[in-house]
Measured scan of single mutants.
Amino acid sequence: NITNLCPFDEVFNATRFASVYAWNRKRISNCVADYSVLYNLAPFFTFKCYGVSPTKLNDLCFTNVYADSFVIRGDEVRQIAPGQTGNIADYNYKLPDDFTGCVIAWNSNKLDSKVSGNYNYLYRLFRKSNLKPFERDISTEIYQAGNKPCNGVAGFNCYFPLRSYSFRPTYGVGHQPYRVVVLSFELLHAPATVCGPKKST
């Protein structure tokens, strides 16, 4: 009989979030998941669920729940959905087409922007091929755009693959930082360890 609440607040209220290319994953298990708490945590810009209804979450049980978190800019949030393409979905964080879970995003301009520009958040701009779903690539190998090998040196047709967002508070919403948490629900042929409040007794 599990009584402890799932530590969603640790994920959502973390002081620092990860850069999207090096997104963070927390496995959540053996706890009571009260998803209604999430609705009250922040004024969400996005709370979209796929393959599951957000209002039914509190009635369900899962084997595992994974919470992935990272920062992107406002106009990239739409890429965090099944079947999307674009720089983020292709080279940084890719959801599977049959994704079961929820994408939660909110504006973090007050936390993640600086007047002089916050350069701490990076994204991958160049990659030889698209990522597979939930693949994480943290390599910093020089990207070869031409025929000549780069031998690890940046220059003509040889690019450092990561680029930094420079978040400034005066930017338009599309270029402001957004914190994203992706909850993916895993149903294996194994005992369910993460249940809503109704199912945990």
Rank of each mutant, 00 (worst) to 15 (best):
D137F: 00
S166D: 12
S129K: 14
S19Y: 01
R124T: 03
G174D: 14
L131M: 06
E135G: 07
C6E: 03
T201Y: 13
S19M: 02
C49S: 00
Y119S: 15
A33Q: 07
F62W: 15
T140A: 10
Y178T: 08
Y165M: 05
N92S: 02
N30E: 07
N1Y: 06
G51Y: 00
K94C: 01
S166E: 13
V20I: 04
D137V: 01
A190Y: 11
K132M: 11
R179A: 04
P7M: 08
T55E: 15
T55S: 15
G83K: 12
I142T: 08
G196V: 10
A14W: 00
I88Q: 03
E141S: 11
P7V: 09
F44D: 15
N109A: 13
S139D: 08
D9H: 12
A192T: 12
T201F: 14
S69E: 03
T201H: 14
E10W: 04
L122S: 15
F134I: 03
F156S: 15
I28Y: 15
F185C: 05
K26F: 06
D97T: 10
N30Y: 05
N109H: 12
D97I: 09
R179Y: 05
N120P: 14
V32T: 15
H189F: 07
S129H: 13
H175L: 10
E76Q: 13
K48M: 06
K198S: 14
N120T: 15
N147R: 12
S36R: 12
F8I: 07
A145F: 11
P96R: 00
E135F: 02
T170R: 10
Y35R: 06
D68I: 01
A42E: 11
A190E: 12
S19F: 01
S139K: 08
E10Q: 11
A105T: 10
N64Y: 13
T55N: 14
H175R: 13
G51C: 01
A192R: 11
E10Y: 05
L188H: 12
F70W: 01
S69F: 03
D75C: 08
V71G: 01
V103E: 00
F17D: 05
G174S: 14
P177R: 02
Y165S: 05
N30V: 02
R16S: 14
N120R: 13
A33Y: 15
G117N: 12
V77S: 02
T85L: 05
P43I: 04
N147Y: 10
F12V: 07
V37P: 09
T46M: 13
Y35E: 06
A154R: 13
N120E: 14
T100D: 02
T170L: 09
N120K: 14
V181P: 00
D90E: 08
C49L: 00
Y50I: 02
N151Y: 11
D98A: 08
W23N: 04
T85D: 07
G117K: 09
K94Q: 01
Y50K: 01
A89P: 07
K132W: 03
C31F: 07
F134N: 07
I138A: 10
R168L: 12
P82C: 00
I88N: 03
N87T: 15
K199M: 14
D9G: 11
R73W: 02
T201W: 13
C195M: 08
R163Q: 12
P177F: 04
G83N: 13
Q176H: 06
V103A: 00
V173L: 14
A18T: 04
T193V: 09
A190M: 11
Y143L: 08
D68F: 02
K94L: 00
F134V: 04
T140K: 12
G117W: 04
F8V: 03
D68W: 02
E135H: 06
C6I: 02
Y123K: 09
P82K: 02
H189E: 15
F156N: 15
T55H: 14
R127T: 04
C195T: 08
I2Y: 13
E10M: 08
Y121E: 03
P149I: 09
K132D: 09
G86I: 06
N109R: 08
V52K: 03
Y21V: 06
N107Q: 04
L162N: 05
K94D: 01
L131V: 09
S108P: 05
L183V: 02
S116Y: 12
A14K: 09
W23L: 02
K94N: 05
N92T: 03
R168K: 15
E141I: 07
T63L: 07
Y121L: 10
A89N: 03
V115Y: 11
S69P: 00
F156I: 14
R179V: 04
N107P: 07
N87M: 14
A22Q: 09
T100S: 08
S36P: 05
V71L: 06
V71F: 01
S113T: 10
G101C: 01
P82D: 03
P82V: 01
L122H: 15
N120A: 12
G117P: 07
N1P: 10
K48H: 06
W23C: 03
N157V: 05
D9E: 13
N147I: 11
K110R: 11
I2Q: 13
T63W: 06
F17H: 03
P169F: 03
T63H: 10
K48E: 09
L60Y: 13
A154Y: 08
V71T: 06
K114S: 15
D112P: 02
V20S: 04
P133V: 03
K128F: 07
V20W: 04
L187Q: 13
F8C: 03
N64Q: 12
A42C: 01
S200L: 14
F8T: 02
A67H: 01
I104F: 15
N58R: 11
F134M: 08
N120Q: 14
F160A: 13
L188P: 12
S53H: 13
T193F: 09
F62R: 06
L38R: 02
F62Y: 10
Q79D: 03
C195P: 08
K48F: 02
S184G: 11
Y50P: 00
I72R: 00
P54H: 11
F47I: 14
K56M: 10
I2V: 13
A154M: 12
N4F: 07
W106C: 02
R179I: 04
A18P: 15
Y123M: 06
G101H: 00
A105Y: 11
F156C: 10
Y143H: 11
R78Q: 14
C195V: 08
K56E: 12
V153C: 09
N40G: 09
L183M: 06
F62L: 09
V181K: 00
N1G: 09
A42D: 06
K198W: 11
P7H: 11
N40A: 11
D9Y: 10
P133C: 04
N147S: 14
R127K: 05
N13P: 00
P191R: 12
V115S: 14
P133F: 02
Q144L: 03
G196A: 11
G74D: 05
E10D: 10
N58G: 12
N64T: 11
R124I: 04
D59C: 04
Y171K: 15
Y66D: 06
S200K: 13
P161G: 02
A192E: 12
N130A: 14
E141K: 11
L125T: 14
V181L: 06
F185G: 06
N40L: 07
L57V: 07
E10C: 05
G74L: 02
I142D: 06
L187Y: 10
C195L: 08
K26G: 02
V194G: 10
Y178I: 07
Q176A: 07
G51M: 01
N151L: 11
H189G: 15
D68P: 00
S166N: 14
T140N: 11
S164N: 15
A22P: 02
F70L: 01
G155K: 09
F44L: 12
Q79V: 01
C150L: 04
G83W: 01
I28V: 07
V37W: 14
L111V: 14
E141W: 02
V20H: 03
R27L: 10
Y123L: 04
L38D: 04
Y119E: 15
P43A: 08
R25L: 02
F99V: 00
V115E: 15
Y66V: 12
F167D: 06
L111E: 14
A89E: 03
L183S: 00
L187V: 12
V103G: 00
C195D: 09
R163A: 12
G152K: 10
N151W: 09
Y39A: 15
V173Q: 14
A67T: 03
A33E: 05
D90M: 07
V32I: 14
R73L: 04
Y165P: 05
L5T: 11
Y39Q: 14
R27Q: 11
H189N: 15
D59P: 05
H175C: 10
E76H: 08
V182E: 00
S53L: 08
Y66L: 09
V32E: 08
N157A: 11
K199W: 14
Y178K: 02
V52D: 04
